[in-house]
Design a protein around this nucleic acid. Structure first.
Length: 266
DNA sequence: ATGGCTATCCCTGATAGA
């Protein structure tokens, strides 16, 4: 089974690049974030169908929006924090940041973790609360013994080695200890960062700011992650970043992350 | 060239991103 995650930063603008990514990598599952639209366009859905992909979508106008594309039909689709609620009143997350589905017998979540704005801001409080709530969702719905994947833009660079220019970023909402601890708490459900398993030396990134020539200057962060429960993670044969996807005309600011598992996609 | 932000909408300015 090949699974990918990619923050497309507007799925409409990235329609041609999406087709290219599917052709180049032929993933069994592709988790998308930042659709920035309530639904996938009809012509995109038709194209996906022609390519043999189903889509489970939790979209939103302008902001956020997540999806799971899969060669097998997604089963038991879960949208947002449905069933357990997000806030104290039991209401759901006002942002479309999470969708889950079972594919090939694996429970898969595509997540777009909150950015967090400035450290200490209301958005930062929401970011930390969101990660805590995600852990509670995993505890409520799942066991670390089952095959499960959480993939997406986690908006946290877990380690110093995931930051090209630490002096520029260490005080940011992606790197401060509170943010890293929040992500570690999600991981402590029983997940393994499958890219990190293969590349603990660091120095590989998945996001580069559009501004200030960040990409050609190599000023990147690794904030797009594929987590798997331990037994499933142990079957991961390869994990990589498609850095080339960040090049050329009208790229997303994120590159796709790919992981291969010795797990039957049938 | 890997290139000087980008995408969206209440669209010519504000908001959000990370």
């Amino acid at each position: 089974m090949r699974i990918m995650t990619w923050n497309v930063n507007s799925v409409k603008v990235r329609a041609e690049r999406l087709a290219g990514v599917l052709e180049r990598h032929e993933p069994d599952v592709l988790c998308l974030q930042e659709l920035k639209t309530p639904e996938l366009p009809a012509e995109m859905l038709a194209d996906l169908k022609d390519r043999g992909y189903h889509a489970a979508v939790h979209g939103q106008k302008t902001y956020n929006g997540v999806a799971i594309l899969s060669k097998a039909e997604p089963q038991d689709v879960l949208v947002g924090f449905e069933g357990i609620g997000f806030d104290a009143d039991g209401g759901d997350d006002p942002h479309a940041r999470l969708i889950g589905a079972v594919v090939y017998g694996v429970r898969i979540y595509s997540g777009y973790f909150p950015n967090g704005g400035e450290v200490g801001s209301e958005k930062f409080v929401y970011k930390l609360a969101w990660m805590r709530r995600l852990r509670e969702l995993l505890d409520a719905r799942h066991s670390a013994d089952e095959p499960l994947i959480v993939a997406g833009d986690v908006n946290v660079a877990p380690f110093d080695g995931d930051v090209a220019k630490p002096d520029r970023w260490n005080e940011s909402t992606h790197c401060v200890p509170e943010a890293r601890e929040g992500l570690q708490h999600v991981e402590a459900f029983g997940l393994a960062d499958v890219f990190y398993q293969k590349h603990q030396e660091g120095g590989v990134y998945s996001w580069w700011d559009y501004r200030q020539l960040a990409f050609p200057k190599g000023d990147g962060l690794r904030i797009d992650i594929i987590y798997a429960t331990k037994d499933l993670a142990a079957t991961c044969s390869d994990a990589r970043v498609d850095r080339d996807e960040r090049k050329g005309k009208q790229p997303s600011d994120h590159a796709p992350v790919i992981a291969d598992f010795d797990w039957p996609a049938s």
